[in-house]
Write a protein that binds this DNA or RNA. Structure first.
Ligand code: SF4
Ligand code: SF4
Lengths: 139, 139
DNA sequence: TAATTTAGCACCCAGATGGTGCTCTTCCAT
DNA sequence: ATGGAAGAGCACCATCTGGGTGCTAAATTA
């Protein structure tokens, strides 16, 4: 339905949160308490993200997750891809479709998909946070 | 999963097909045979489109559907909206969400959604058809 | 060693989506 | 007027995905 899955949303929320604490390791518990998300599920999501090396994890007391790269460089597209596969509006854009033979909109859809993908690639996790206090002066 | 539903795809295919026969009434049977789509389902979709006045229908022999407006003016967003509700990446963008209180990405997501919507509003059914402006031979 | 925290696995449940059948009504053509 | 063509309505089914959870093992640190 052209919607993000909850997993993606939760993932993005967590990433945004982590982005607001650069360097620090944050435990699932902390994040969940802060963002009021289903613990088990968020844990699952973060696991996936760390497997994909968008996050790095440390176990034991004081452990948790943190970003492996500055949020300004983490495109939304990357996150979505990890959490729900390739950004594609249709099957043919990801795998293949047996209607391709008689499909007259395939190329057109391709163009649309590319545009959507661009939107997602053009925005970063950092931009998700509202009204960042970062001064555009200190570059 | 950020994907179009089949209904939307089929709808777009049919609309594109109708766009290639301006003015003519095309029967469901004809369209289905041409595009190799599930008849019953496509009928359902076209029904919705005509109820939303994107198409107009005529019954009886020689009847069928045709566009109510030039395809160049029919935005993809319009079609998707009719077939699967408002273009929104998240619940909060369509209805509401009980996480809004603690959600830190809502405004950000809003921006993304707006961009996506723009993409869909900036493209028309006419643009779906290949082989108009350039030759799609080799890529 | 005890406490904390991630990793892995297996599972359940509800709702959305894809798809179909059949009947009724409308309307054009002859 | 009358039969056939085509749309409208309704009801239904099967499957898949997605949201969500429990429990145990492995790692790490105090
Ligand atoms: S080929 Fe056509 S029908 Fe098949 S997935 Fe692509 S757009 Fe959809
Ligand atoms: S408020 Fe946040 S969690 Fe709720 S739908 Fe919007 S983005 Fe998703």
């Amino acid at each position: 339905m052209l919607r993000l899955t909850r997993r993606s949303e939760y993932g993005l929320m967590a990433l945004a949160y982590l982005a607001s604490r650069p360097g620090e390791y944050c435990s699932v518990r902390e994040i969940v308490e802060e963002l009021k998300l289903p613990k088990r599920l968020l844990a699952e999501v973060l696991k996936d993200l760390s497997r994909a090396e968008l996050l790095e994890a440390t176990r034991g007391p004081g452990g948790g997750y943190r970003l492996t790269q500055p949020a300004e460089r983490l495109a939304l597209a990357r996150v979505v891809e990890v959490l729900e596969g390739p950004v594609a509006m249709t099957d043919c854009m990801a795998h293949s479709c047996d209607l391709e033979a008689s499909c007259i909109i395939q190329t057109g859809i391709g163009r649309v998909t590319r545009n959507i993908r661009n939107v997602l690639e053009g925005m970063t996790v950092a931009e998700l946070l509202p009204a960042q206090p970062e001064t555009p002066l200190a570059v």
